[in-house]
Design a protein around this nucleic acid. Structure first.
Length: 150
DNA sequence: GCCAACGTTGGC
DNA sequence: GCCAACGTTGGC
């Protein structure tokens, strides 16, 4: 089993939204590296750290798990969607997503500041300067350390 | 294939 | 809103 960190802007889609919906396709990813993680590496039951970005208190807000593995992101075919990609076809989809299922919302957000100040988490891409990737692998060690911060 | 221009991310 | 860092695009 693998661990991941997935970023979402809470104004767009938050841990509360996932809690309400129970399950959601992780659509809208338009970065090849992030896509490849979803398409090639994310397995059923993998644990996801749900990270809130571009908001007042950036940090890990809760947990989700992969409930369906890679399949084409339908928003790429939808000309009315902001995620529409005219170069994608049903025969040759360009963008893939997984579906995630709500697991838990933390009592308090594990803030980016806290993560930066915690020993053993300094290798996370999240805290590297200039790292913007919206999906990142997390080691078991890092996951355990973060869980201990909850 | 290079690289300048442009767009996006995301913390602050 | 600013801006550094990075990714993508497209002309050549």
């Amino acid at each position: 089993m693998n661990y991941w960190l997935m970023k979402s802007e809470p104004d767009v889609f938050s841990i509360d939204n996932l809690k309400t919906k129970k399950k959601s396709g992780w659509d809208g990813v338009r970065n090849y590296q992030a896509r490849n993680f979803m398409r090639d590496d994310m397995k059923l039951g993998d644990v996801v750290l749900f990270y809130h970005s571009s908001c007042e208190v950036p940090g890990v807000a809760g947990l989700a798990k992969v409930s369906k593995t890679s399949h084409p992101d339908p928003s790429q075919f939808d000309s009315k969607s902001e995620y529409y990609d005219p170069k994608a076809t049903k025969e040759a989809p360009r963008w893939f997503m997984v579906e995630v299922e709500f697991v838990e919302k933390f009592d308090h957000v594990i803030t980016l500041t806290e993560i930066k100040n915690t020993k053993g988490l300094d290798k996370m891409p999240l805290v590297q300067k200039g790292s913007r990737l919206s999906i990142n692998p997390v080691t078991e060690q890092e996951f355990k350390i973060i869980k201990n911060l909850v």
